[in-house]
Every structure is written in structure tokens, then in C-alpha cells.
């Protein structure tokens, strides 16, 4: 999927985001690097609080300016502009037009007092020169594209008249109406029930192919990334700890954390049916009390002295390997029949 000669549409270099809190400054995202190529789907995976949402909101510059600091050395290169230092008016032209975003909670992400049509129209109004009539046609076309039945009627309805799955479809329609280069989907299916999840993911994947939009899929659900992603970035406590094509990662996870994450997914046809799922012991360290060495050390079963003393760098350990942030990466294939069958 990653053609070598294609240019990435988004390059994230050394992305570091800090927050001012009552207890001092805390680094929520620490030196994150990745590229997004046109039309590919990248999954950012990790537990709550690992920095995946902050990463996406930093790219969109949606964090509140009063208490968030994007480190000046951070680079978010998009279409020749560094979004990390772009002005608010530059960002406004990017948001919704070049990079669009959908959110976790379809129930509350649409404005309850405006019609679906109005909210679709809004994005088109900001970013296109279409006439009112053309915008309405485009809105209806978008609703049809996200497979909402009877779109001519639906544009006149309010969000409360739609179900959760329908609302997320509307969100996707809004996000894609200006044909953005990148769609950031922040846990888009978490709040939906499982059958609707599968439908929404299939829809996103379908639209990605049709519109050649790259998708940055943020989720804690490895089952979700397995079905739709090309590459996966695993984050832990603000750091990228492993980055690999999806098959590699599922077949041969190198970081103990990734492996533990994979093992805690329920598997279809598991022989040990009825047993408890393995869990990862301990909790994510508080960002205020990060250990000096490896951030996963307290929960790692392979911890050694070096892990305490020195933080590992994100790099491939051998020729042909994918980058991993571990001194002692696992190096065997894992029997994970996780398959493409979930979510």
C-alpha cells in the first residue's frame, strides 16, 4: 500500500504537546513522528490517556490555546505549511476542507438546534463557492453517499430525529463533503453498537477508496484497526512505542505492550473457551510521574536493569524490522488468530 515514490500528504515530525495544569506542565504527547500517504488508513492505538486524541487534536489545532502548548520544534507539514505554527485563519481554511474530523460521540457531536442540512451546508459555505441550490444538491448527494435513506427528507430533519449510527453517517458526510485529503476519525465507532460499528467502518473504507482520502483512525480497539488499517502506530504514555504495517504487527509484535494488547482481544474459535481474557497488569503511569527509563517498565514482564536506566529509542532492531521502542524486543511469531473477523 505504501508506494515508495509517493509523497506523503502529511508529515508529522517531533510532535510534542504539553498542557499547563494546576500541578505544573505535563507532556501529553512526546516526540511523535509519522507520515500519512494519500488514500491509506493509519491506525493510532493505545489505552486511554496515551496521547492519541491529543495527537489528532494537535494536528487540527483544536486544543484550547490557554492551557496547551505545542512545542516550537514540532512540525506538522501539510501542503507546504507547518500547521504547528500556522495562524488561526490559515487553520480555518484547512479545517473541514483539507483535513476533516469526526468524533467519538455522534449523539452530541451534531448541533441539536440546526437541521442536518444546515450543518452540512455550513462546511460547504465556508469552503466552496457553490450557490445555495448547488450546496443543497451536494448535501443530498453526500447523504446518499453515506447511505442514508431518503436524503431529500433527512436534510430537513434535526439530529434528535436520527439514530446514533445515522448521526455518525451524517458526521462522515459533513467531514467528507469538501473532499478532504485526510479524515481524522477519533474513536468513531466506540459509542455505537457492534453491528453499526462494522457498517460505519465498512462505509469509511468504501469512501476512502472512492475519494482517495487518507484516514487517521484513532482507537483503542485493535479489532477495528485489524479490519481497515494499512499501518498501525501504537502509543503508550505519550510516546510512539511501535509502528508497523498491520500484518507485521499482528503477526510479529515486538513490544511487550503490543503483544499484551493483542492477547487481550477476545478471539474467535479460542480453544481455551470460557477462560478469562488476559489483562495487562498495572495502570498507565501518571504523566506527572513518568519513570526515567522505559515508560512501560512497571508493567513489563521482561524488565531488566537497562530498562530502568535508559529509555529505549524508536528504531528497528534488525534489518527489515519495523521500528519499536524497546531494548529487548520480542522476536517470535505469535499465534494470534485474531483475524479480520472482528470488530
Amino acid at each position: 500500500m505504501i508506494a515508495g515514490d509517493r509523497k506523503p500528504v502529511l508529515e508529522v515530525r517531533g510532535l510534542t504537546t504539553r498542557f499547563r495544569t494546576d500541578r505544573g506542565i505535563v507532556t501529553a504527547v512526546d516526540d511523535v513522528n509519522f507520515d500519512v500517504y494519500p488514500g491509506e488508513t493509519i491506525g493510532i492505538v493505545g489505552e486511554s490517556g496515551c496521547g492519541k486524541t491529543v495527537t489528532s487534536k494537535t494536528i487540527m489545532r483544536l486544543l484550547p490555546e490557554q492551557n496547551s502548548i505545542i512545542d516550537p520544534s514540532s512540525q506538522i507539514l501539510f501542503g507546504g505549511t507547518n500547521l504547528a505554527t500556522a495562524s488561526e485563519s490559515q487553520m480555518r481554511r484547512v479545517r473541514g476542507d483539507k483535513i476533516a474530523m469526526i468524533f467519538q460521540e455522534p449523539m452530541t457531536s451534531l448541533n441539536p438546534v440546526f437541521t442536518v442540512g444546515w450543518q452540512l451546508d455550513e462546511a460547504l459555505r465556508y469552503h466552496t463557492k457553490l450557490s445555495k441550490k448547488q450546496r443543497l444538491e451536494r448535501s443530498i448527494e453526500m447523504l446518499r453517499l453515506v447511505e442514508i435513506p431518503n436524503p431529500e427528507q433527512r436534510v430537513k430533519e434535526y439530529p434528535h430525529q436520527l439514530s446514533g449510527g445515522m448521526r455518525q453517517r451524517v458526521m462522515i458526510a459533513i467531514a467528507l463533503c469538501c473532499e478532504p485529503d485526510i479524515l481524522i476519525a477519533d474513536e468513531p465507532t466506540t459509542a455505537l453498537d457492534v453491528t453499526i460499528q462494522a457498517q460505519i467502518l465498512a462505509l469509511m473504507d468504501d469512501l476512502r477508496k472512492k475519494l482517495n482520502t487518507a484516514i487517521l483512525l484513532i482507537t483503542h480497539d485493535l479489532g477495528v484497526v485489524a479490519t481497515v488499517c494499512d499501518r498501525i502506530i501504537v502509543m503508550y504514555a505519550g510516546r510512539v512505542i511501535e509502528q508497523a504495517p498491520v500484518r507485521d504487527l499482528f503477526k510479529r509484535p515486538q513490544h511487550p505492550y503490543t503483544k499484551a494488547l493483542l492477547e487481550s482481544i477476545p478471539k474467535a474459535g479460542n480453544k481455551e473457551h470460557g477462560k478469562r481474557l488476559p489483562t495487562i497488569k498495572g495502570i498507565v503511569p501518571s504523566l506527572f510521574e513518568l519513570p526515567a527509563g522505559c515508560r512501560f517498565q512497571d508493567r513489563c514482564e521482561f524488565k531488566q536493569q537497562r530498562c530502568i536506566d535508559e529509555e529505549p529509542r524508536l528504531e528497528p532492531k534488525a534489518q527489515g524490522d519495523h521500528p519499536v521502542r524497546c531494548h529487548f524486543p520480542l522476536n517470535q511469531d505469535v499465534d494470534l488468530t485474531v483475524s479480520q473477523s472482528s470488530p
Partner: peptide
């Protein structure tokens, strides 16, 4: 703090639009 305000910002709405259209109508 509402989610739809973030949505509006993600769509590229200006601060003025957010205040006087999105927030005000909801605060009615």
C-alpha cells in the same frame, strides 16, 4: 465545552460564527 462546538471548529467555523450562531442559538 459541548461536542458540537468542537465539530463546528473542525468544520472551519470562525470564532464569531461559533459564538453568535452555534452557542447563542443553543443558549436560547
Amino acid at each position: 465545552g459541548r461536542d458540537y462546538i468542537t465539530t463546528a471548529r473542525a468544520k472551519g467555523a470562525t470564532s464569531t460564527k461559533i459564538m453568535f450562531v452555534h452557542m447563542l442559538k443553543n443558549a436560547m
